[in-house]
Design a protein around this nucleic acid. Sequence first.
DNA 1: CAAGTATTCAATGGATTACTTGAATTATAG
DNA 2: CTATAATTCAAGTAATCCATTGAATACTTG
Lengths: 224, 224
Amino acid sequence: MSLAMNGKRQHKEHLYILFAQVASALANPHRLELLDLLVQSPRTVDDLAQESHMTVANTSQHLQRLKQANLVADARDGLYVRYQLADPAVARLWLDLRSVGEKQLAEVERALDAYRDHRHEFATVAPEELPILLQRDEITLLDVRPRLEYQSGHIPGAVSIPVDELEFHLDEIPRDKTVVAYCRGPYCVYADQALDLLSGQGWKVARLEEGVAEWQQAGYDLEK
Amino acid sequence: MSLAMNGKRQHKEHLYILFAQVASALANPHRLELLDLLVQSPRTVDDLAQESHMTVANTSQHLQRLKQANLVADARDGLYVRYQLADPAVARLWLDLRSVGEKQLAEVERALDAYRDHRHEFATVAPEELPILLQRDEITLLDVRPRLEYQSGHIPGAVSIPVDELEFHLDEIPRDKTVVAYCRGPYCVYADQALDLLSGQGWKVARLEEGVAEWQQAGYDLEK
DNA sequence: CAAGTATTCAATGGATTACTTGAATTATAG
DNA sequence: CTATAATTCAAGTAATCCATTGAATACTTG
């Protein structure tokens, strides 16, 4: 009996070790940034290296580490290797980690406030209000992420104008409706930049609370 | 503009660093075991040390580490200090980590199979079947965890008989109904031990899939 | 207040692991 | 065969982490 229990105990310990390895793959800021990008859409190593300001070699090695923990998967696409989340559960895990961190670290709260200063200038719209507003045709819903991310999945009814092209496409935006902008998530500044520009030009503007990943996680569908 | 962006970028990096710290608090098998125990019920340092087979000093230090990441909280209770999860979101995080690990590491699957050998001897009951079976009075639902954990929250309708007292309380169990046993979760062996004993004595038995934490996470209530 | 118990602290030693970079290598498309 | 993308390798530095120990602190009970 005690032998059997020891056997069980060893298996149990083995499992904890494996789960700890997954956690330790998450325990690096660069890798979390990579994951955060991959939640938005699959990307090549080169893309990821640029967006995260790392060398390609370094990016590649961090990706290997994530792959080893089965958090991401890779697929060759011509000259490029395209990385993506290995499973939707990974997105959930990342959102949970973030929400635990946000909720509980007072330190984060302060950092977040500093980071969000800008945001509080704008009114916000809750996800559950969106369908109603769209149906009544009272707003223009604007996805200001890079077009690649829009294509890989966006909120139904949204129009894609990446933030850096926005100033050249102002004439496409109805002047009589409020513009509701969104981007990746709570730490994404694209929407704030866009709303800055638009409100300076006289539009009524608001920001969608949260972003695409949270929208999806809340059980709403994305459009492709 | 580029200055502003740098500022933003720094804040963003700071956040990733903080989240990585939470992850690294999770990146140790002993701490995960402690968390797993705390998901069941609050416990004293001494309890935790015994159950995880560590020295008290070592246990205490791991708990400090978890506390620093705001994953657990402590409260003095007479002579003892009682630790508990800092927030229900922590339970969710742990379950997600586990499910990502299980789903994705082939290695875990194998370890799990070895660990579960025993279990496959018994029929299982899915959580959603439970209410019906209980209402029809077709089963006896048995919580075989230590009484402390039962008291801190159990599935409605369950009877508490800790596994090590079971042999002395056989006469309390109706012989004409199937016994459905459950314990902490998928890695807990108490239920298997109990069913071993009972089926040897002629009872019809089955095991509840999963355990208390998963039950609660699935949105069902616990009784106190 | 004194004794006893529970918990934490501080310091050690040692091992281990982690991260980054630049150069060499592999893989693919044209 | 050449150019580009990605991975691997080697190397070095840094950093972290962990278990143990013995002592100190905090608390409760009598």
